[in-house]
Write a protein that binds this DNA or RNA. Sequence first.
DNA 1: TTGTAAGCGTTATCAG
DNA 2: CTGATAACGCTTACAA
Lengths: 319, 319
Amino acid sequence: MPTIKDVAKLAQVSISTASYALNNNPHVLPETRKRVKDAAKTLNYYPHGAARNLKMKKSKNVGVFIYAFGGPVFSDILEGIRQTLQEHDFNIIVSSGKSSENLLKERQIDGAIIFDNYISDTILQGYASHGMPVFILDRILQGEHLYPSLIDNEGLVITMMERLIQKGYRRFAYASGPQAAFNNKMRQKGFLEALQRHHLTPVSTYPGDFTIRGGYEIGLSILKQTDWPEVVFCANDEMAIGLIQAIQEKGYRVPRDLKVVGFDHIPLGDVISPKLTTIAIDHALWGRSIARAMIDIIGGKKLKVSPSPQGKILMRESA
Amino acid sequence: MPTIKDVAKLAQVSISTASYALNNNPHVLPETRKRVKDAAKTLNYYPHGAARNLKMKKSKNVGVFIYAFGGPVFSDILEGIRQTLQEHDFNIIVSSGKSSENLLKERQIDGAIIFDNYISDTILQGYASHGMPVFILDRILQGEHLYPSLIDNEGLVITMMERLIQKGYRRFAYASGPQAAFNNKMRQKGFLEALQRHHLTPVSTYPGDFTIRGGYEIGLSILKQTDWPEVVFCANDEMAIGLIQAIQEKGYRVPRDLKVVGFDHIPLGDVISPKLTTIAIDHALWGRSIARAMIDIIGGKKLKVSPSPQGKILMRESA
DNA sequence: TTGTAAGCGTTATCAG
DNA sequence: CTGATAACGCTTACAA
């Protein structure tokens, strides 16, 4: 594995001149620069990350730490983050589980974006207090160098519910995500708040887990009931899709026999029939704005407003 | 940000003693070790990754480089890799695009797992030749330190086709993935080979892109034809699901009016109706075996057999 | 314009 | 058992 020393030797210059030349320092003669660069090319030289990071006290890496790989929402956010970071010559490092904490602790990254309810507040605050900027998505956490980025879950659900109530629907049920999940809690809060404003009470609440299969199970349990709700508000699109699947499989129709609403606007919801009525979040855009904010912070700028995504009500066929 | 120097000072020992103590070197008195560890804890000290990586010439990071974030297949593989790496105290770093190449070139990782047709052979061979172990999934590339891990796409498709032909089906079409994709090519090859063995010719080939939407479009174009195939073999499950969706939406039934077969066995295929007939790959297991092989290689062991996943024919309702 | 040398935070060799 | 000290590969004052 060649080092800058090898390059310098081959180009017949000192190590420092080689470094200057490679970093395009204007004080080095074009001729020597060329000689050095040629040497680097023939040796297939590339600077050693650890050495440079150590010296420069920065890595140009941004870590994105998620609870689990996969899922349409994550992938859009990640893609947005990736694009923006790449445009600004930062590397994206996605990780999960114990690796996340290691990378954070060992400072192999210049900043962290957290989408993981399993990393404790204490750890996050600990490393943020050391000066590492930490963005936290869809979770509230205050402190220096901590930047929460929140969807207006509650407000968006209320708006959607108002529209549905306006359409004349009255008997609502809620298909819940994991009880512990912050975004689920806020969506449920909005659901209840909207009902209360119209002096309505929820027909029932079904416990779920944000997955298609979970939604499917909820659908099966509804089928067993004698007294169906009119509308099921699902905590996310995946559950809504599973629920519709179960209902249709037994010969019932959506929205004729049951109305279903989701949250997120994932691509699959565009393809199924009926098209899913949902609250659309532009996840890729969200990712981009977070990445841009992160780059600003790392560059020493102050953040005026914390980036938060807009949502849009998408009334389609399923409700 | 505290360094080992600060710890040493607080514990009233030299830097080297501090290092020994923190790394549990047996030559240091239990009493001093405790003093050092306490100091580290009160300072919230953690070794700086770059410094350690530079000194040790290893990072305990394994890079997984993928073409794009997302998709049910990737997420299962990644989860498998993550688990195994974590059990062996390695970090998983997932990246995509330019970041992948940077992390590779700067040697911020001890080994790379590639699932990305966009990183050129030359780059891969270049860094492998420097001694970095590189695993390549579902793509052929020979060379030192290069370890291809291949699904038996062709053989599995042939087996599946034999079963279908045995069932009496004769008029087959192929819904293709991206032309450039290696796995698509091999699956198509198997498809054609099986037909040839039975002196059959394909009814048609539909160009696709591995997405649900792509499969849906293919479905629409089939609906426009007067002369339908009997069975459509789809290059992956997502296309099969989109195709079924399109067919059903217009009032036709699967498998009554058209039989559909996929490849991969993604969870969504279990939930739709009819359940998808497909070739099941255990992606999580594949990920685990690759990670285990990687750890062995990094640890200096020789690899006897390159890890390759088994497949299983899953005859269900859609064909 | 180029070279010498210090230093980033670790680990590990070698004396004491 | 503990402490100086060199070294990892790189960047960057400062000197020449």
